[in-house]
Structure formats: C-alpha cells, structure tokens
Design a protein around this nucleic acid. Sequence first.
DNA 1: AATGAATGAGACTTCATTCAT
DNA 2: AATGAATGAAGTCTCATTCAT
Lengths: 201, 201, 201, 201
Amino acid sequence: MSTDAQDTASTPTRIRRAAEEILAEGGYEALSMRKIASRIGLSQAAIYRHYKDKDELVGTIVAAGYAELVALVERLNEKGGSPAEILAHTVRAYVGWAEERPELFKALLLREVRPASAGVAGLAPGVARRRRTFGLLADLLARGMEEGLFARADPELTAQAVWTSIFGLAARLVLEGELPREHREALIERQVNIIVRGLSP
Amino acid sequence: MSTDAQDTASTPTRIRRAAEEILAEGGYEALSMRKIASRIGLSQAAIYRHYKDKDELVGTIVAAGYAELVALVERLNEKGGSPAEILAHTVRAYVGWAEERPELFKALLLREVRPASAGVAGLAPGVARRRRTFGLLADLLARGMEEGLFARADPELTAQAVWTSIFGLAARLVLEGELPREHREALIERQVNIIVRGLSP
Amino acid sequence: MSTDAQDTASTPTRIRRAAEEILAEGGYEALSMRKIASRIGLSQAAIYRHYKDKDELVGTIVAAGYAELVALVERLNEKGGSPAEILAHTVRAYVGWAEERPELFKALLLREVRPASAGVAGLAPGVARRRRTFGLLADLLARGMEEGLFARADPELTAQAVWTSIFGLAARLVLEGELPREHREALIERQVNIIVRGLSP
Amino acid sequence: MSTDAQDTASTPTRIRRAAEEILAEGGYEALSMRKIASRIGLSQAAIYRHYKDKDELVGTIVAAGYAELVALVERLNEKGGSPAEILAHTVRAYVGWAEERPELFKALLLREVRPASAGVAGLAPGVARRRRTFGLLADLLARGMEEGLFARADPELTAQAVWTSIFGLAARLVLEGELPREHREALIERQVNIIVRGLSP
DNA sequence: AATGAATGAGACTTCATTCAT
DNA sequence: AATGAATGAAGTCTCATTCAT
C-alpha cells in the first residue's frame, strides 16, 4: 500500500516483493530462492536469516494477499447499498482482483489446502465464524433474507455456494488468460445475474 | 479399484497407471520420470520407448481423463428427463467425478491454458461448437429456454457461466479435501438449487 | 556416383546414405544410431545386422569419402598439363571438394588419427608409397623438379609440406563457413601462388 | 609442469586445470561436468558456482589459451630481426606451442566457428584490424614488402594465406601425434622454406 | 546480518548396445 | 533379416538448504 522506495525498504520486505514479482512473472514454478536472492542483490543464504524456509516465505506472501482480499470485501460492505447490489459489486471486485494479481490468486487459491481446517479452506462448517470474508458474506445474505430480498436458507451454506461460483469464474478467467473484454464482461454479468436470481424468493 | 492385474498389463498401460498413482499421491509436482520408472521396475530410458517425452505422457493421461468426463456427460444427456433434472444430474456427476479422481481433475483443469484456444479452455466465444461438453450443455439450456423452463438468454454464454459455477464447486471440494459427507451433499444441493432457480424465467 | 532410387538400394547402402545425410546436416555430434534408423524406417537393432558397431559404420563412410578424394586427384593427374598447372588445379579441386562436403571432410580429416600409421595419416615418412594421393603428388613434384620447374628437394617431404598447406586452407574454409565469394577465391589464388613460387628454383 | 600445488589453488583454478587435463587426455568429447567434479572431489553443482555453465568454462579456457598464443607471437615480434627471420621464428613457435598443448590447440582451432565474425575466425576480410596476431603478421609482411624482401601484395590477404599454411602444419602434427623428431623438424623447415621463398619477389 | 562455498538429490533426456522373438 | 523392448551409463543443469567465516 505504502510505496516505499525499494532501497529503503527492510530486507524482509524486499525479499517478499522480489518473490511476488517473480511469482507474477513466471508463476509458482519459477519461484526459487536463487532468483529471489539475485534479484535483490543478496546471497541465497541471507534469505534464511529472515525466513525459516521457502514455505514460510510463501506463507507470508499468501497471508498478505489474503489480507488484501479481506480488506477489499470489507470496504465494499461498508459502502452501503442493497444486499443484491453489494453482492454484485463483490463479485466484480473479487474477479477483478484475481485478474489483476493472477499469480497471487493462484498461489493463494489454486493450491492444496494441507490441513483441511487451516489456510483458505472455505467449505468447512462454521467457516463464517472463523473467516472474515465468509462472515461478511453470510451476514449480507442473512440481511437480504430478512429484508425478503432473498429466499430463506442457511446463510453460511449459501455463502459457501455463492463463493464457489464466484471462485470458479475467477479461477477460469485467470487460468485461461486473455479473453475479449466484451465477452469477459458479459460473462461476469451473466454469472452475477444467475446468482442474484438464484437467491431470490 | 476394479481392473487389477498390474503385472499382465502392457508396459504403456503400466507406465500410465504408475503416473496416475503418483499424481494421485503427490500431485503434479511430484510426477517425475524417475519415480515412474522405479515404481514399475523399469529403467528411465525404457519409458521413452513408449512416450516421446514427459509432455506426451501427461498429454495422454489428460486426454483419457477428458474423454472419460465427456462420456459421463453424454451418458447423462442420453438418459432423458427434463432439462432441469438433467442439469442437476450433471452437476452431481461432474462433482462426483472430480472427487473420485482428484489428481486427474487437478491435472486436467487446474493448470494454465497456454494458447487460449487449445486444451480445456472453456470461456472463449464459440466453445460450444468446439467442445462436446459445452455443446451438450448449451443445447440442454437452449431446449430449456424453448420449453419456457429457463429464461431466454444466449445459451453458450449461459453454459459458460453455469460451468464456471460447477467447476468452482468441484475445484474447492477437491482442493480442500475431506469434508463431512452431510455437509458436502447439502452444499452441492444448495448450488444446484441456486443455479436452477437462477436460470428460471 | 550411381543415383539409385533410395528404395531399391541395399540396406547397408541406405544406412550409409542416411548417416551421411545426418552428418552433412548436423555434424558428427548429431550422428546417432537412433536417427539413422528412424530416417530409413528401420529399427535401431537392424543396423547392427549390417555394421558391427558405430565405429565400423563411420569407418566405412570415411573410407568411401577418402576413395572419392583419391579418384578426384587421380583424374586431375591424368588430364595432363604442366606440373605447376596440375598442382594449381589440385589445390582448387581439393578445397572445392572440402567445401562441398564439409561434414565428410571434417569426419575424414579433422579427427584424431588413432594409430599414427593407420588411416589418413600423411606426415609419416614413406607415406608416398602407402598412400595413393601422396604418391601422385610426390611424383608430380619430382617431375617438376626434373623438368627444372621446381627446385630440387625430397619429393615426399615436399609433398607433405604442400599438403599441410592445402589442408590448412581447406580446413579453415570449412570451419569458418560462409565467406564472400570474391575473398574466398582471392585467398585460394594467393595460396596457390605462394606454393608454386615457393617451389620454384 | 611448473605451478603444482593443486591443493592450495583456488577452486576455479582447480576446475579449469581438471578440465584441461581431461581435454588433454580424451579430447573435447570427453569433457563433462561430471568428470571434472569427480576429479577434484567436488559435487557437480559446485562447479556452477564458479562457472555459469559449460560454455562459460570452456570459453574461459579457450580465451586463456588464445591469450597465451597472442603473447607468444608478440614476444617474437619484439625481439627484432629481419621480417623473414621473424616469420620463420613465428612458424616454429606456433607449431611448437600447438604440440605442447595439443588439446588446447584443438579446442581452440579445430572447432566450428559459429558466427563467422566471432571467435577465432581468421579468414574474413578486415581481420588484421580485429585480431592482434593477424595485425602483427600483416604488419610484418608489409614491412618486408617495403624493404623489398617480399613481393608486393595485399598484406592482409597474404597473412591469411600464410596463416592457413602454418595452421595446416600444426593441425596435422597435432592430429597425427608421434612422429620421428628428425622428420618433424625437416618438415617444419621445408614448410618455412616454401613460405619464405613463396613470398620473395 | 550477510556471504561464499558446497552439497545431495533430483529433474529430463539421449546414447550405443543387447537380447529374445 | 528385422523388430520391440529394455538397459546402464552418461549428459547438463536447478533446487532448497547448510555451514564456516
């Protein structure tokens, strides 16, 4: 968020940034300690002073990316509007974020979730209490149900179903890359439309 | 599960099977010619008699997996029923298939699509003509629209939107692994419900 | 020399031809039994029916190439003319042959000579008796000396010295590849001139 | 021969030495990173810390060899004497150097010259300006021409013709290996004689 | 806090050759 | 006379990580 000059940033930050750059340029497979080190003019060994191992480094990046995504969703919820509007905005914002940072999205969401409870797992029951985004989404849906805008149903379960839909769209867009702008937008709107209508009473 | 008799199978088959096993156990990153060879007690070089290189081997596996999926969808469409029923069956079958062969699903659908036109790309315009599954899905939706069951809209675009939803659900289930059976089913039904209602006029 | 149709030629011949083609296209390093076999639609193992091993195959090719070169030099000597003229023609023909079949030239002359006595070794004493080309060259020089055209000296030693000069020119032309036509010719003529004048009394 | 103490030398030096040894024993084809590593009791990967890849390692060796050769020729030109004498000394020194370091000579001069302009290419026009040895040789010949010792001709072209002759002699001596000392010397002197007389007015 | 050096494992691929059929 | 299958060795290179300084 803060745009420090690269040279004055702390070493861990510079490492993280370099890693993100490489991730963005060449994908996860291209990310190696060697490349990170050479990009910031540091020895490979130096990285281990700041991050226990590659897993920890990747973990940090992923966590930061996740926080970004959470902030994005929070902001939308604070802006106000009808639940359906907020939902539509959220879909667009989520997809847009994925397309802007495709490699981060992949690193974040297209990887195995080791212990099912940890990380970005979103399908387990009770997730609305543990994960901020799901809590917000479930609350939003619950409000819509109370207002008679959406059909009554389990808000958490519904949040999960909606999320998998959005996630699927974002994932395909990221994985398939370039698509005609017009078609891409039509697709998003069609999806938004199906979801919103699908929730209606 | 069903066709054992590993020792009597042809070498290419044994190679393919070993590759799928490794894929299933450790994911794509774990797949190496070395491991395949040692697993079936063959020299590394021997593999190259049967598959030009790693790409060809993976390609064969992926193609077979895709064919399986196509056959599955075709069978459902032939069985008859209302478009909404067929659609619901398709979602369940697709998700079920993904969960049964998680690593194949990942190898097939969670990888980058290099030239957007090739491979499993599903979002490009005109895909209904090129890809059997999309053609079937678009036809199904068109029929539903004609019958007044679904709201009128571009069938291909709608097929793509529906597919990304289903794909998203399958992908999350595969990536997150174990989930309570009951919850898993509730989730699928909720998703089916949203999609079908989302399409209704 | 005889231009048989490839299909009717004997298998050993087809093998040899394929090997020469590969040699010409990609150099010695590119020559492999696998490539030869695939080029003529034969199994690798089949080659071993006709040639004991790679060495024998290469040996055969080299021998044939050498015979070609010998025939070339013989023809020039039979055509008549003054020794100086024949010598000049020989230089031009030798260099021209090398440039026409660069890979054969390299396989023939730019490789180690294992037992110093064998193969294409040309510097050992007595070579004029053992090797046809050297015999011809030495005879030519001897005739020139008798005619008072060339300064008197050991004909064999002189033949060797002259040959290394020509060989050096041919080798450099082959190794350095493309050169402006004009410059190439000027270079050859300059070399011919130096040699002929260098032999003059 | 002179600077032993292999154990105390720096790793890059030890790598280079091992490479040269292997080159000397088995030629370029025998040179492999594996062999180098095992010879100095290092892991293969360790070599890559000191040389980017095989090309860089070979390049370093070749460059050093070339520098050696240049220094040799320079020294002879500085020692003084008549152009004919210097030329004769140069031929002897060049051939002697080739015989002392046969594998280096082969690695340096018996390899393909990829882009005709680069590397050790000597036949292209204008080489006298680009390559120190050729410049020296051309200057030497020009001086001889001015002094009326050599017939007037293009000095660069003449230098190239002379060089190919010398190169041819050195190459054959290196390729054919052992030769009776006496015969070898007679051969060199005969070649020197032909060249010097060939240049005379 | 950082470095240079090294490691061991592993990646894919190609080679000449052999053997049973 | 030929094939398909297999082998063992070798090739270059990259990786995450460790350790002494």
